[in-house]
Design a protein around this nucleic acid. Sequence first.
DNA 1: CTTATTCCCTGATTGC
DNA 2: TGCAATCAGGGAATAA
Length: 273
Amino acid sequence: MPELPEVETLRRQLSPLLAGRLILEAWFSPEMPQLPAWPPEAASLMSWLVGRRVLSVERRGKYLLFPLDDGNTWIVHLRMTGALLHCPGGPPEDRFLRAWFRLDDGSWLCYRDVRKLGRMWVVPDPGQVVGKLGPEPLSERLSADALLRALQGRRALVKALLLDQRLVAGLGNIYADEALHAAGISPLRPGASLSPQEVERLRRAIHEVLARATHHGGTSFWAYVDARGERGQHQLHVSVYRRHGQPCPRCGMAVARVRVGGRSTHYCPGCQV
DNA sequence: CTTATTCCCTGATTGC
DNA sequence: TGCAATCAGGGAATAA
C-alpha cells in the first residue's frame, strides 16, 4: 500500500515530469464520484485544474501536493489501491482507470484505483487537508523529544500510536511493524511504557526503515506500482511483515502475528520486548 | 481529551 | 468445482 516510501518514490519520479507542465484537459470517471473530495463535484474540480500550470511536486506524509500557478494546491491521496501513472502514449484501456490529465508536452497523467478509496482536493491552503499531520520522519523534524512527548501518558499500544498520522506522518502497517522490529520493541507495549532510550531507538529505527524502503523503491506486496508501472523491491527485504511462522532474521524465533486495532501486526516474541 | 469500533471499496485468497 | 466468508488497510466518522 502506498505509505511514505511509496509516495516519496512517486514524488521523485513525477517531479521532473510534471514541474512546469500545463494541464490542457482532464477527465473523471462517473464510476468514482467520490474521488473529488474538494470541490466535491468532478466538474468543479476539473475547472480548477484545466488551464493551470503545475509548479512542483511535493509530499507531506502520504499526501502528494502539486502547487498550481494560481496559488491553489492540488492534493492527491492514494489510500489503499490508488496509482499515479505517467502515460506518454495516452490513457490505457483499463476498467480501473478513474481519471486522466492531458499535459502540454503531449503526455498524460493517469489515476488508477481498483477499490476507489483515493481522494483529490484543490484548495487555497494545503493546511486545510494536511494541517493536522505530525512531523515528517525522513527529514530531521522528528526529534526524540517530540516522539517522547507524543507517547507520554498514552495507554494505547505503541503499534496503534505509530499508525496515528497526527503523531508521525507517513507510517502505515508495513513500516510500523518493521520499525518496531528494528528498534527491538514489542508492538504490544503501551506508549507510555517506553523509556527515553527506547524512544530514541524507535526514532532512529523509523528513519532507517523508511530510508531503506525508499531506496528500494517502496514495497509491492499487492498492487503498488510506481509512476512507470513498476513494482518496488522492499518486500524482498522485510524482517517481520507477512513473515509469520518464519524465523526472525535477528534471533531465529518464529515471527508471530496478532491483531492490534483491527490491523495485522507482525513481530518477533524473542527479540522484541 | 482519550480509546475503540465501523465504514468505505473490490479483487484475491481461504474454507468447506 | 463452486460459492461464501474472510482478508487487505488509510482515514473519516462515530460512539463511549
